[in-house]
């Protein structure tokens, strides 16, 4: 799941300075699950903005809608009949959703209300931890299901480095060494030969925007 956190209220308020009618668009998928940009969070942010602007004697009219997913054009369609009424759009989706919204309505200012943070897991309600950096070359099969790119401070494909210190990382005693954990897990699984395999350096495909077309599909004309 994509995990985000809400921008500081002052920052959102500043982004909206000068607009008097704004549509706040929530997203019902990842950011709703991590409690930052779903229907409820849209209502709370709108209430805050409404109160803050009234206190400044400069009221803003906030519209609210939460779509199933902002990263899917078919779910944005519902907004077509609404956006013209508004001076700007505020999006509580992840960075991908915000950009897709801006792409669909290029004439409207689209403003972010959250900071997209990582791909992570849900430890319990409200507690999320990063697990994947979308490096495009997964080595979890060799590393006992522990990602060295995410969990190692240096993101080493081949480790550990000289900074491993009795299970901790050199950057902090409380930060476990990912490669120590990988070693322990592989040892328990009797698969220590995996750690000897050398993984070639990443081509850092993540420096340009990537595209995935699944087998059986092809690039189609954009609607």
């Amino acid at each position: 799941m994509i995990v985000a956190k809400r921008k500081p209220f002052e920052e959102i308020k500043n982004l909206l300075k000068g607009y008097r009618k704004v549509l706040n668009v929530g997203c019902g998928t990842c950011v709703a699950v991590c409690l930052v940009g779903g229907e409820k969070e849209v209502a709370v942010l709108n209430a805050e903005l409404d109160m803050a602007r009234k206190l400044e004697e400069n009221p803003v009219e906030m519209g609210a809608i939460t779509v199933e997913r902002q990263c899917d054009m078919e779910y944005l369609e519902i907004l077509d009949s609404m956006v013209d009424e508004y001076e700007a759009l505020l999006s509580m989706a992840c960075g991908a959703g915000i950009q897709f919204l801006a792409e669909r309505y290029p004439a409207k200012p689209v403003l972010p209300a959250v900071d997209t943070t990582f791909l992570g897991v849900n430890q319990t309600v409200g507690w999320y931890e990063e697990r994947c950096r979308s490096c495009s070359s997964c080595v979890l099969g060799l590393t006992g299901g522990i990602c060295p790119v995410t969990m190692c401070a240096k993101g080493l494909y081949n480790g550990p480095c000289g900074g491993t210190n009795k299970g901790s990382c050199e950057i902090d005693k409380n930060q476990p060494c990912a490669w120590y954990q990988i070693y322990e897990r592989l040892k328990a699984q009797n698969r220590l030969d995996c750690i000897l395999e050398i993984t070639p350096p990443s081509e850092w495909q993540n420096q340009i925007p990537r595209t995935v077309i699944q087998p059986g599909y092809k690039k189609q004309e954009k609607k």
Binding site: F9, E10, V44, E48, M51, A52, L55
Partner: peptide, 8 residues
């Protein structure tokens, strides 16, 4: 906390 942010 939210109210303090808003100014109430």
């Amino acid at each position: 906390k939210l109210l303090e942010e808003v100014g109430i």
